[in-house]
Design a protein around this nucleic acid. Structure first.
Lengths: 330, 330
DNA sequence: CTGTTAGCGCGTTCAT
DNA sequence: ATGAACGCGCTAACAG
């Protein structure tokens, strides 16, 4: 390991001078600077980030903790975070919590390797968050309602999303309505349910229990839920599936069973993942503003870092993206 | 910022004792350990990773530099890397080079914030790689042929992949063959072309220039290339599109023009991205072993770190995944 | 079992 | 314009 000491020696100057030269300070003469830079190049000198960070107490890097680095759902969120951070001169590094592997993520949160962290993973418990958040170390949590000092949160109005799904089916003339819900211990899922069923009942409608199946947010779960639905004597004409991943499984099961979407049943999903556009029939869905979520989170981190106050909680709205999988009932 | 010093003072012990206690050394008595841990909890003490790394000269973390953190193409690769690293007790952090934003990536490479780096991004130039690779800092480059001390590479046999694509079309009875190639300055793309055209000519076939369109590996580029193809009087019966992203664009353009796949033209792509299974018609394609690429890269890094030698270059093979977009010509 | 001391590599006073 | 000395927070050698 060649250090700045070696460079200084080779250039025949003091360490401090070498440091100044390498960091392009104007306080050093052109000639000495050149000498130092040449020596550095010759010795293949590379700064030691650890030492630098320790001294400077900042990195200009924000950490992002995701459940799954490779999930397509996260893509637009990351993009939103990245572009925003970049515009402020910050970089981003990401790690995942998949596979019970909390090690790296917790080290991010606890050991202050970055200037702040954005968390989007249910694997990190609230207590952990409370435990690690400190002054001068901003934390933004996505998709979770939580309140604490130095802790910001960005959520999506899942309740309103559920309402939109119900309204969409109602406006398309559907009165026999089915529902494949998400995991009941899931916060998002509960709110989507609440919005959906309440809006239905305000319109004098409800989901009969034979048409209400519980799913697990996975594609496979959606497939299985649809199989259950298909065993009923009759199918609803409108169906809300509480996330797109499951909706894709439902579409598969329906295709296998020869049930035509949207002719026999109109299907509306939730999330608007990338696949929703490409699957056939393409999927009508309640869109989460993913890019915006990322951008908002990044803004909050930066504002905190720059000492300007910012709202502790931000809630974003959803909208329906009409595609092929829903149609008017005549 | 509360440091280990504060904890030691509060617990009434020396800093070193506090350190031992916090790191669960057996060399410290139960009582003192409890005193220290209690003090730490009370003061909300969190280790400072920067200082620790500086001292330990290692992090047990591997960095991954990707062109695009949110590209679905990378998903299985990351998974392969992650699972392998995890099995060795290493963690992973990732950053991207998208948007001309090399800052973070270069800092990873230069400033030794991690124990080793896996690079999968054409944005990082060879010279940079040569410049930053040093002893005890293993670098693995994916999808690039490169040779240097402390530098490992993992590639996919694109040449063979091109051959497979040609063979597939030939075996399905196609003799009028079109080709939408990738960017000509791209190394992968060149090899795919070479394998494809050479195999064709060995079978007495070739791609007439009217049916050879150059694309740019983007979906939009594929769409445009297909429009160009559609302007010809006649369409080939078999078409090789040199990546799936473009193939999806081609499928769109064909669907718009009422050209049926595979009845009128058989289409084979390259990569086997996730979407290939879901799009309709589903896409026959030459699969890159992405998970394996990631796993191999991770193994090489770890082996180097553990002092065991390993092959400097590994080349993986491709295979054809038959789906709906190609059919036998009768 | 515990305290003292040293130093990791860097950036930054404060002198000269 | 340049150099000597210091300290960031931590771990590890060596004493006691």
């Amino acid at each position: 390991m060649t250090t700045i000491k070696d460079v200084a020696k080779k250039a025949g100057v003091a360490v401090s001078t070498a440091s100044l030269a390498i960091n392009h300070s104007s306080r050093v003469s052109k000639e000495t600077a050149k000498k130092v830079l040449d020596a550095a190049a010759e010795l293949h000198y590379q700064k030691n980030g650890w030492a630098r960070d320790l001294k400077m107490k900042k990195t200009q890097i924000i950490g992002v903790v995701l459940h799954d680095l490779s999930g397509s759902f996260y893509a637009p969120i990351i993009k939103g975070i990245e572009e925003t951070l970049h515009s402020y001169g910050y970089g981003l590094i990401a790690c995942s919590t998949a596979g019970e592997n909390l090690g790296t993520a917790e080290r991010f949160l606890r050991e202050r390797r970055v200037d702040g962290v954005i968390v989007f993973s249910a694997d990190i418990k609230n207590e952990t968050l409370f435990d690690v958040c400190r002054a001068h170390f901003p934390l933004v949590v996505l998709d979770r309602e939580i309140s604490h000092a130095n802790l910001y949160s960005v959520t999506v109005d899942n309740l309103q999303g559920g309402v939109l799904a119900a309204e969409h089916l109602i406006n398309h003339g559907h009165t026999s309505i089915g529902y494949i819900s998400g995991p009941s211990n899931n916060w998002d899922s509960q709110l989507r349910s609440k919005g959906f069923t309440e809006c239905l009942s305000q319109n004098g409608l409800s989901v009969p229990s034979k048409w209400h199946i519980k799913g697990d947010y996975s594609q496979r779960g959606g497939y299985q839920a649809a199989r259950l639905l298909l065993q009923q004597e009759q199918l609803p004409s409108g169906l809300f599936v509480s996330n797109d991943q499951m909706a894709i499984g439902v579409l598969e099961a329906f295709a296998e069973a020869g049930v035509s979407v949207p002719d026999q049943v109109s299907l509306i999903g939730f999330d608007d993942i990338e696949l929703a556009r490409y699957i056939r029939p393409s999927l009508t869905t309640v869109k989460q503003p993913k890019y915006e979520m990322g951008a908002t989170a990044a803004h909050q981190i930066i504002q905190h870092l720059q000492g300007s106050p910012s709202k502790e909680h931000t809630m974003l709205t959803t909208e329906v993206i009409q595609r092929q999988s829903t149609a008017k009932l005549d």
